[in-house]
Amino acid sequence: MVQDGDMSEWQNSITDVQGLTIGQAEDHRLKSGVTALLCDAPCVAAVHVMGGAPGTRDTELLLPENTVERVDGLVLAGGSAFGLDAASGVQAALREMGRGFAVGPARVPIVPGAILFDLLNGGDKDWGRYPPYRELGYQAAQNAGRTVRTGSVGAGTGALTAGLKGGLGTASMKLDCGFTLGAIVAVNALGSATLADSRHFWAAPFEQGAEFGGLGWPAPLPERVSALRLKGRPLQPGTNTTIAILATDAALSKAEAKRLAVAAHDGFARALWPAHTPMDGDLIFSLATGAAGRGADLDAMMDLAAFAGTVMARAIARGVHDATPADGDVMPCWSSL
Protein backbone atom coordinates (compact mmCIF):
# COMPACT_ATOMS: atom_id res chain seq x y z
CA MET A 1 0.00 0.00 0.00
CA VAL A 2 2.98 2.34 0.27
CA GLN A 3 4.12 4.34 -2.70
CA ASP A 4 7.39 6.22 -3.02
CA GLY A 5 6.22 9.41 -4.72
CA ASP A 6 8.63 12.33 -4.39
CA MET A 7 10.78 11.24 -1.43
CA SER A 8 13.45 13.92 -1.87
CA GLU A 9 12.34 15.79 1.25
CA TRP A 10 10.89 12.82 3.11
CA GLN A 11 11.82 12.89 6.80
CA ASN A 12 10.17 9.65 7.93
CA SER A 13 8.54 11.75 10.62
CA ILE A 14 5.18 13.17 11.54
CA THR A 15 6.17 16.46 9.89
CA ASP A 16 5.85 14.74 6.50
CA VAL A 17 2.16 15.50 7.10
CA GLN A 18 1.86 18.99 5.66
CA GLY A 19 0.90 21.70 8.14
CA LEU A 20 2.73 20.49 11.25
CA THR A 21 5.95 21.33 13.09
CA ILE A 22 7.54 19.70 16.14
CA GLY A 23 9.51 21.40 18.90
CA GLN A 24 11.36 19.74 21.75
CA ALA A 25 13.09 20.77 24.95
CA GLU A 26 14.73 18.70 27.64
CA ASP A 27 16.77 18.95 30.81
CA HIS A 28 19.26 16.06 30.98
CA ARG A 29 20.00 16.64 34.67
CA LEU A 30 16.27 16.29 35.29
CA LYS A 31 16.07 13.40 32.77
CA SER A 32 12.80 14.73 31.44
CA GLY A 33 11.41 16.99 28.75
CA VAL A 34 8.60 18.13 26.49
CA THR A 35 7.56 17.53 22.88
CA ALA A 36 5.21 20.10 21.34
CA LEU A 37 3.31 19.73 18.07
CA LEU A 38 2.20 23.03 16.53
CA CYS A 39 -0.40 23.30 13.78
CA ASP A 40 0.21 25.85 11.01
CA ALA A 41 -3.57 26.36 11.06
CA PRO A 42 -6.04 24.91 13.56
CA CYS A 43 -6.57 21.16 12.98
CA VAL A 44 -9.43 18.78 13.66
CA ALA A 45 -8.41 16.57 16.57
CA ALA A 46 -9.62 13.64 18.64
CA VAL A 47 -8.27 11.35 21.35
CA HIS A 48 -8.64 7.76 22.50
CA VAL A 49 -7.39 6.42 25.84
CA MET A 50 -6.90 2.67 26.36
CA GLY A 51 -4.56 2.60 29.34
CA GLY A 52 -5.82 2.46 32.90
CA ALA A 53 -3.74 5.31 34.33
CA PRO A 54 -3.82 8.36 32.01
CA GLY A 55 -2.74 11.90 32.82
CA THR A 56 -4.29 14.51 30.56
CA ARG A 57 -5.30 18.10 29.98
CA ASP A 58 -8.32 19.27 27.91
CA THR A 59 -9.06 15.89 26.38
CA GLU A 60 -12.81 16.18 27.06
CA LEU A 61 -13.14 19.01 24.54
CA LEU A 62 -11.91 16.62 21.82
CA LEU A 63 -14.95 14.36 22.12
CA PRO A 64 -17.02 14.41 18.92
CA GLU A 65 -20.11 15.75 20.71
CA ASN A 66 -18.30 18.78 22.16
CA THR A 67 -18.12 22.24 20.61
CA VAL A 68 -14.48 22.98 19.89
CA GLU A 69 -13.60 21.41 16.53
CA ARG A 70 -9.91 22.24 16.18
CA VAL A 71 -6.71 22.61 18.17
CA ASP A 72 -3.69 24.87 17.79
CA GLY A 73 -1.24 22.34 19.17
CA LEU A 74 -0.72 19.20 21.24
CA VAL A 75 1.78 18.43 23.99
CA LEU A 76 3.51 15.26 25.19
CA ALA A 77 5.52 15.67 28.40
CA GLY A 78 7.37 13.84 31.11
CA GLY A 79 6.99 14.73 34.77
CA SER A 80 3.83 12.83 35.67
CA ALA A 81 1.11 15.26 36.82
CA PHE A 82 3.73 18.01 37.18
CA GLY A 83 4.25 17.83 33.42
CA LEU A 84 0.73 19.03 32.70
CA ASP A 85 2.19 22.53 33.18
CA ALA A 86 3.97 22.08 29.84
CA ALA A 87 0.79 22.83 27.90
CA SER A 88 0.59 26.22 29.63
CA GLY A 89 4.03 27.07 28.27
CA VAL A 90 3.06 26.05 24.74
CA GLN A 91 -0.16 28.00 25.11
CA ALA A 92 1.81 31.10 26.14
CA ALA A 93 4.03 30.81 23.06
CA LEU A 94 1.04 30.42 20.76
CA ARG A 95 -0.66 33.41 22.35
CA GLU A 96 2.42 35.50 21.59
CA MET A 97 2.06 34.36 17.97
CA GLY A 98 -1.52 35.64 17.91
CA ARG A 99 -2.95 32.13 17.74
CA GLY A 100 -6.05 30.78 19.44
CA PHE A 101 -9.81 30.22 19.49
CA ALA A 102 -11.52 33.59 19.06
CA VAL A 103 -13.90 34.59 21.85
CA GLY A 104 -14.83 38.18 21.03
CA PRO A 105 -11.60 40.17 21.09
CA ALA A 106 -9.83 37.47 23.14
CA ARG A 107 -7.93 34.50 21.76
CA VAL A 108 -7.46 31.26 23.64
CA PRO A 109 -4.94 28.78 22.17
CA ILE A 110 -6.35 25.25 22.39
CA VAL A 111 -3.54 22.93 23.51
CA PRO A 112 -4.53 19.53 24.93
CA GLY A 113 -1.74 17.48 26.47
CA ALA A 114 -0.76 14.16 28.00
CA ILE A 115 2.01 13.14 30.38
CA LEU A 116 4.11 10.09 31.24
CA PHE A 117 5.71 9.10 34.53
CA ASP A 118 9.50 9.55 34.65
CA LEU A 119 10.05 10.53 38.29
CA LEU A 120 12.08 7.42 39.23
CA ASN A 121 14.59 7.34 36.37
CA GLY A 122 17.72 8.61 38.12
CA GLY A 123 17.22 12.30 37.30
CA ASP A 124 17.45 15.15 39.80
CA LYS A 125 13.85 16.07 40.62
CA ASP A 126 14.71 18.62 43.32
CA TRP A 127 13.38 21.54 41.28
CA GLY A 128 12.25 23.74 44.15
CA ARG A 129 8.78 25.25 44.57
CA TYR A 130 7.55 25.02 40.99
CA PRO A 131 8.29 22.30 38.43
CA PRO A 132 10.13 23.37 35.25
CA TYR A 133 7.63 22.05 32.72
CA ARG A 134 5.91 25.34 31.86
CA GLU A 135 9.24 26.80 30.76
CA LEU A 136 10.21 23.59 28.97
CA GLY A 137 6.90 23.73 27.11
CA TYR A 138 7.54 27.33 26.08
CA GLN A 139 11.05 26.42 24.88
CA ALA A 140 9.71 23.45 22.94
CA ALA A 141 7.21 25.67 21.12
CA GLN A 142 9.95 28.18 20.31
CA ASN A 143 12.08 25.33 18.89
CA ALA A 144 9.37 24.06 16.54
CA GLY A 145 10.47 23.07 13.05
CA ARG A 146 10.19 20.30 10.48
CA THR A 147 13.22 18.26 11.61
CA VAL A 148 12.34 15.85 14.42
CA ARG A 149 14.98 14.51 16.82
CA THR A 150 14.39 11.01 18.20
CA GLY A 151 15.52 8.87 21.11
CA SER A 152 16.38 10.42 24.47
CA VAL A 153 14.90 13.82 23.68
CA GLY A 154 11.75 15.79 24.43
CA ALA A 155 9.07 13.82 26.22
CA GLY A 156 11.15 10.67 25.74
CA THR A 157 14.26 11.98 27.52
CA GLY A 158 13.81 9.88 30.64
CA ALA A 159 11.39 7.25 29.37
CA LEU A 160 11.85 3.60 30.38
CA THR A 161 10.42 0.25 29.27
CA ALA A 162 10.83 -3.29 30.62
CA GLY A 163 14.62 -3.67 30.77
CA LEU A 164 15.55 -0.91 28.34
CA LYS A 165 15.41 2.85 28.06
CA GLY A 166 12.43 4.10 26.10
CA GLY A 167 12.45 7.22 24.00
CA LEU A 168 10.79 9.51 21.48
CA GLY A 169 10.07 7.95 18.08
CA THR A 170 8.46 9.05 14.84
CA ALA A 171 7.57 7.52 11.47
CA SER A 172 5.51 8.28 8.37
CA MET A 173 4.18 6.73 5.18
CA LYS A 174 2.43 7.74 1.99
CA LEU A 175 -0.55 5.59 1.00
CA ASP A 176 -1.66 4.60 -2.49
CA CYS A 177 -4.81 6.65 -1.96
CA GLY A 178 -2.59 9.75 -1.83
CA PHE A 179 -2.88 10.59 1.85
CA THR A 180 0.08 10.78 4.25
CA LEU A 181 0.14 9.32 7.74
CA GLY A 182 2.62 10.25 10.47
CA ALA A 183 3.09 9.35 14.11
CA ILE A 184 5.15 10.58 17.04
CA VAL A 185 5.28 8.72 20.35
CA ALA A 186 6.97 8.85 23.74
CA VAL A 187 7.55 5.23 24.82
CA ASN A 188 7.49 4.68 28.59
CA ALA A 189 5.70 1.34 28.68
CA LEU A 190 5.33 -1.15 31.51
CA GLY A 191 6.01 -3.84 28.93
CA SER A 192 8.76 -4.50 26.40
CA ALA A 193 9.35 -3.43 22.78
CA THR A 194 11.65 -6.42 22.14
CA LEU A 195 11.10 -10.18 22.07
CA ALA A 196 12.23 -11.72 25.36
CA ASP A 197 15.78 -10.48 26.08
CA SER A 198 16.76 -10.27 22.40
CA ARG A 199 17.54 -7.25 20.20
CA HIS A 200 14.58 -8.05 17.91
CA PHE A 201 11.57 -5.74 17.95
CA TRP A 202 7.97 -6.86 18.13
CA ALA A 203 7.29 -4.30 15.36
CA ALA A 204 9.76 -6.00 12.96
CA PRO A 205 7.17 -7.10 10.33
CA PHE A 206 6.30 -3.45 9.66
CA GLU A 207 9.83 -2.01 9.49
CA GLN A 208 10.76 0.02 6.42
CA GLY A 209 14.40 -0.30 5.46
CA ALA A 210 16.54 -0.57 8.58
CA GLU A 211 14.88 2.23 10.53
CA PHE A 212 15.22 0.29 13.80
CA GLY A 213 18.05 -2.10 13.05
CA GLY A 214 16.73 -4.20 10.16
CA LEU A 215 16.97 -7.41 12.20
CA GLY A 216 13.56 -8.86 11.46
CA TRP A 217 12.28 -11.58 13.78
CA PRO A 218 14.64 -14.26 15.11
CA ALA A 219 14.35 -17.84 13.89
CA PRO A 220 13.58 -19.77 15.94
CA LEU A 221 11.74 -17.47 18.32
CA PRO A 222 13.31 -17.14 21.78
CA GLU A 223 12.13 -19.48 24.52
CA ARG A 224 9.33 -18.06 26.64
CA VAL A 225 8.83 -15.29 24.08
CA SER A 226 5.29 -14.72 25.35
CA ALA A 227 6.29 -14.52 29.02
CA LEU A 228 5.58 -11.16 30.60
CA ARG A 229 8.58 -8.84 30.95
CA LEU A 230 7.55 -5.87 33.06
CA LYS A 231 9.33 -2.75 34.19
CA GLY A 232 9.22 -3.80 37.82
CA ARG A 233 7.37 -5.44 40.66
CA PRO A 234 5.52 -4.75 42.84
CA LEU A 235 3.47 -2.93 40.21
CA GLN A 236 2.62 0.70 40.91
CA PRO A 237 -0.28 2.52 39.22
CA GLY A 238 0.62 5.57 37.17
CA THR A 239 4.32 4.81 36.75
CA ASN A 240 4.15 3.98 33.03
CA THR A 241 2.54 5.34 29.87
CA THR A 242 2.99 5.43 26.12
CA ILE A 243 1.58 8.66 24.70
CA ALA A 244 1.35 9.44 21.02
CA ILE A 245 0.00 11.59 18.20
CA LEU A 246 -1.19 10.25 14.85
CA ALA A 247 -1.66 12.73 12.00
CA THR A 248 -2.93 12.74 8.42
CA ASP A 249 -3.35 15.36 5.71
CA ALA A 250 -6.88 14.14 4.91
CA ALA A 251 -9.81 16.41 5.73
CA LEU A 252 -11.70 14.53 8.45
CA SER A 253 -14.51 15.15 10.92
CA LYS A 254 -13.92 14.76 14.63
CA ALA A 255 -15.71 11.41 14.52
CA GLU A 256 -13.48 10.19 11.68
CA ALA A 257 -10.38 11.42 13.53
CA LYS A 258 -11.59 9.54 16.61
CA ARG A 259 -11.83 6.35 14.56
CA LEU A 260 -8.18 6.76 13.48
CA ALA A 261 -7.10 7.25 17.09
CA VAL A 262 -8.88 4.00 17.99
CA ALA A 263 -7.26 2.13 15.09
CA ALA A 264 -3.79 3.50 15.86
CA HIS A 265 -3.84 1.72 19.22
CA ASP A 266 -3.31 -1.48 17.24
CA GLY A 267 0.24 -0.19 16.80
CA PHE A 268 0.74 -0.26 20.57
CA ALA A 269 -0.35 -3.90 20.63
CA ARG A 270 1.93 -4.75 17.69
CA ALA A 271 5.01 -3.06 19.15
CA LEU A 272 4.71 -3.59 22.92
CA TRP A 273 4.04 -6.65 25.07
CA PRO A 274 1.92 -6.16 27.07
CA ALA A 275 0.11 -2.92 26.19
CA HIS A 276 -2.99 -1.13 27.51
CA THR A 277 -2.50 -2.46 31.03
CA PRO A 278 -4.14 -1.03 34.17
CA MET A 279 -0.72 0.46 35.03
CA ASP A 280 -0.20 2.23 31.68
CA GLY A 281 -1.85 5.49 30.66
CA ASP A 282 -1.78 4.61 26.96
CA LEU A 283 -3.27 7.43 24.89
CA ILE A 284 -3.29 8.55 21.25
CA PHE A 285 -4.27 11.96 19.91
CA SER A 286 -5.23 12.08 16.24
CA LEU A 287 -5.00 15.13 13.98
CA ALA A 288 -6.33 15.89 10.51
CA THR A 289 -4.69 18.90 8.88
CA GLY A 290 -6.83 18.82 5.73
CA ALA A 291 -3.78 19.87 3.70
CA ALA A 292 -4.61 17.30 0.99
CA GLY A 293 -7.71 19.34 0.20
CA ARG A 294 -10.14 16.43 0.19
CA GLY A 295 -11.90 14.07 2.51
CA ALA A 296 -11.52 10.32 2.73
CA ASP A 297 -14.09 8.01 1.13
CA LEU A 298 -14.79 4.59 2.62
CA ASP A 299 -11.89 2.91 0.82
CA ALA A 300 -9.44 5.62 1.90
CA MET A 301 -10.68 5.48 5.50
CA MET A 302 -10.07 1.74 5.46
CA ASP A 303 -6.47 2.32 4.36
CA LEU A 304 -5.92 5.09 6.89
CA ALA A 305 -7.28 2.96 9.73
CA ALA A 306 -5.25 -0.11 8.74
CA PHE A 307 -1.95 1.68 8.35
CA ALA A 308 -2.44 3.91 11.41
CA GLY A 309 -1.39 0.89 13.46
CA THR A 310 1.68 0.06 11.39
CA VAL A 311 3.08 3.60 11.34
CA MET A 312 2.52 3.80 15.10
CA ALA A 313 4.30 0.47 15.68
CA ARG A 314 7.30 1.69 13.67
CA ALA A 315 7.46 4.94 15.63
CA ILE A 316 7.46 3.00 18.93
CA ALA A 317 10.34 0.78 17.85
CA ARG A 318 12.34 3.79 16.62
CA GLY A 319 11.90 5.50 19.98
CA VAL A 320 13.47 2.57 21.84
CA HIS A 321 16.09 1.91 19.13
CA ASP A 322 17.31 5.54 19.11
CA ALA A 323 17.68 6.00 22.89
CA THR A 324 21.15 7.09 24.01
CA PRO A 325 22.99 6.52 27.31
CA ALA A 326 23.43 9.23 29.94
CA ASP A 327 24.99 9.54 33.38
CA GLY A 328 22.83 8.12 36.13
CA ASP A 329 20.74 5.87 33.89
CA VAL A 330 18.87 3.10 35.69
CA MET A 331 18.45 0.99 32.53
CA PRO A 332 20.61 0.25 29.48
CA CYS A 333 19.89 1.38 25.91
CA TRP A 334 19.00 -0.96 23.05
CA SER A 335 22.35 -0.05 21.42
CA SER A 336 24.20 -1.66 24.35
CA LEU A 337 22.67 -5.11 23.85
Score class of each variant (00 low, 15 high):
residue 81 A to N: 13
residue 131 P to L: 08
residue 157 T to P: 13
residue 72 D to P: 02
residue 154 G to W: 00
residue 104 G to K: 15
residue 76 L to Y: 11
residue 119 L to N: 06
residue 47 V to I: 12
residue 125 K to D: 05
residue 36 A to P: 07
residue 95 R to N: 14
residue 77 A to S: 15
residue 90 V to P: 00
residue 73 G to L: 02
residue 96 E to F: 09
residue 102 A to G: 11
residue 82 F to A: 14
residue 82 F to W: 10
residue 89 G to Q: 14
residue 162 A to W: 04
residue 40 D to I: 02
residue 51 G to P: 01
residue 114 A to L: 08
residue 20 L to C: 06
residue 159 A to D: 01
residue 149 R to I: 05
residue 137 G to M: 05
residue 32 S to P: 05
residue 45 A to N: 07
residue 142 Q to K: 13
residue 60 E to T: 14
residue 56 T to N: 11
residue 133 Y to Q: 01
residue 145 G to W: 15
residue 34 V to P: 00
residue 65 E to W: 06
residue 131 P to N: 11
residue 98 G to V: 12
residue 58 D to G: 12
residue 90 V to H: 08
residue 101 F to N: 04
residue 44 V to K: 05
residue 122 G to L: 13
residue 27 D to P: 11
residue 33 G to S: 12
residue 73 G to S: 05
residue 133 Y to F: 05
residue 54 P to S: 09
residue 54 P to Q: 10
residue 52 G to M: 02
residue 116 L to S: 01
residue 142 Q to H: 11
residue 26 E to F: 08
residue 80 S to C: 09
residue 25 A to Y: 04
residue 87 A to E: 07
residue 92 A to I: 15
residue 81 A to V: 07
residue 163 G to L: 08
residue 57 R to F: 07
residue 96 E to N: 14
residue 26 E to S: 11
residue 161 T to E: 07
residue 99 R to Q: 07
residue 66 N to Q: 12
residue 69 E to L: 13
residue 138 Y to G: 04
residue 130 Y to M: 08
residue 47 V to Y: 05
residue 26 E to Q: 15
residue 95 R to I: 15
residue 102 A to V: 14
residue 24 Q to R: 15
residue 20 L to F: 06
residue 98 G to C: 09
residue 86 A to N: 06
residue 85 D to I: 09
residue 148 V to Y: 12
residue 105 P to G: 08
residue 25 A to L: 07
residue 22 I to H: 01
residue 86 A to D: 09
residue 163 G to R: 10
residue 85 D to A: 10
residue 61 L to Y: 11
residue 44 V to A: 09
residue 58 D to L: 14
residue 35 T to F: 11
residue 116 L to I: 13
residue 87 A to W: 07
residue 32 S to G: 13
residue 123 G to N: 03
residue 126 D to E: 06
residue 24 Q to G: 08
residue 99 R to H: 06
residue 87 A to L: 10
residue 155 A to D: 03
residue 59 T to V: 10
residue 138 Y to M: 08
residue 138 Y to F: 13
residue 61 L to F: 12
residue 149 R to K: 11
residue 156 G to L: 00
residue 38 L to V: 14
residue 73 G to R: 04
residue 61 L to R: 08
residue 87 A to I: 08
residue 156 G to V: 02
residue 144 A to R: 04
residue 111 V to N: 02
residue 73 G to H: 04
residue 34 V to S: 00
residue 105 P to D: 12
residue 23 G to F: 04
residue 23 G to I: 14
residue 110 I to N: 01
residue 60 E to N: 11
residue 93 A to W: 03
residue 70 R to S: 12
residue 159 A to Q: 04
residue 72 D to L: 09
residue 97 M to T: 10
residue 74 L to M: 05
residue 34 V to A: 00
residue 150 T to S: 08
residue 22 I to Q: 01
residue 70 R to K: 15
residue 112 P to S: 09
residue 133 Y to T: 00
residue 30 L to Y: 02
residue 56 T to F: 09
residue 42 P to F: 13
residue 20 L to T: 06
